[in-house]
């Protein structure tokens, strides 16, 4: 038995906790859904296809040229995309039924998605203008919100598991 191990054993018991600051990479679990006993968990098309089906059965949710060879601002683009997603889910609270799709075309950022018609059209127009205005001020480039509305959240359900 080595000396450090012996030291550990002889030390008086203390109460301490360990903290891991790096995010857990649960790549075998993330993006996959478990079958429920009653088979009543609604899944959209996006959720029904696990991540390894990207580029086969479904596409990416962020489309830009940053991660191509010779692309610029890859880290900034990723951070901005996370910010846009957080802002959209917070601003359009419980309205988005799909993932938030962020497409970049030159300096334009297009934000697309499927939204429930639970708020009035007037409020929705306000939210579109509000989002475009604030995001284009923060990101310093034109932002366009291009939405599609559905009447019910069951419209986007692809299957139940």
């Amino acid at each position: 038995m080595s000396l450090p191990q012996l030291k550990n054993i002889l030390r008086a018991p203390t109460f301490y906790r360990l903290l891991s600051t790096s995010t857990a990479c649960q790549k075998s679990q993330s993006g996959r859904y478990r079958i429920t006993p009653r088979k009543d968990l609604p899944l959209t098309y996006e959720m029904a296809n696990p991540p390894h089906q990207i580029a086969h059965r479904k596409t990416w949710n962020s489309i830009n040229t940053s991660n191509l060879e010779g692309g610029l601002r890859s880290s900034e683009t990723a951070i901005e995309d996370i910010f846009i997603r957080k802002f959209m889910t917070g601003t359009w609270h419980a309205l988005f039924l799909s993932e938030i799709i962020i497409k970049r075309q030159h300096n334009i950022i297009r934000i697309a998605g499927i939204v429930r018609r639970s708020v009035s059209a007037r409020k929705m127009y306000f939210l579109i203008g509000y989002t475009e205005e604030l995001l284009s001020f923060w990101l310093q480039c034109p932002v366009k919100v291009e939405l599609q509305t559905v009447a019910d959240r069951r419209d986007v359900v692809f299957k139940y598991i």
Partner: peptide, 14 residues
């Protein structure tokens, strides 16, 4: 295949 209404895949592709 899923139709064009409420289809996010069609909105993703350019």
């Amino acid at each position: 295949a899923p139709g064009k209404y409420a289809n996010a895949e069609l909105m993703k592709i350019p």
